[in-house]
Simulated assay, not measured.
Amino acid sequence: MDQTPVIVPPVIVTGAAGFVGCHVAERLLERGETVIGVDVFNAYYDPALKEARAARLESRRGYKTVRMDIADHAAFADLVKTSGARRVIHLAAQAGVRYSIDNPFAYERSNLAGHLSVLEACRHAGVEHLVYASSSSVYGERPLNGDGFRETDPADHPVSLYAATKRSCELLSQSYAKLYGFPQSGLRFFTVYGPWGRPDMAYYGFTEKMLKGQPIEVYGEGRMARDFTYIDDIVDGVLGVLDHPPAAGGHELYNIGDNDPVGLMEMISTLEAALGVEATKIFLPMQPGDVPATFANIDKLRALCGYKPKVKLADGLQRFVAWRRAYAG
Rank of each mutant, 00 (worst) to 15 (best):
V6L: 15
V8W: 10
P10W: 05
G15H: 06
A16M: 01
A17Q: 07
V20Y: 08
H23Y: 10
T34N: 13
V40T: 10
A52H: 11
V66C: 06
V66F: 02
R67S: 01
I70Q: 02
D72Y: 00
A74D: 14
F76P: 00
L79N: 04
V80A: 00
K81F: 06
R87W: 09
L91Q: 05
N111D: 07
A113G: 00
G114H: 01
R123L: 06
G126D: 05
L130T: 02
A133W: 03
Y139L: 04
E141K: 01
G146S: 11
E151S: 06
H157N: 10
S160P: 00
L161M: 04
T165N: 06
R167W: 03
Q174D: 07
S175Q: 12
Y176G: 03
P183T: 02
F190L: 04
Y193L: 12
D200Y: 07
D200T: 15
A202W: 01
G205L: 11
K209C: 08
K212T: 02
I216K: 07
G220P: 05
E221W: 15
G222L: 06
R223G: 02
M224E: 06
D227R: 14
Y230R: 10
D232Y: 10
D233L: 13
D233G: 09
D236H: 09
V238P: 06
V238W: 12
D243A: 12
I256E: 14
N259G: 14
G263Y: 13
L264I: 13
E266L: 12
M267L: 15
M267K: 12
L271G: 00
E272A: 13
V277E: 10
E278P: 00
E278I: 14
T280L: 15
L284F: 03
D290R: 03
T294C: 01
D299L: 15
G306I: 12
D315M: 08
L317F: 10
V321M: 05
W323E: 09
A326K: 09
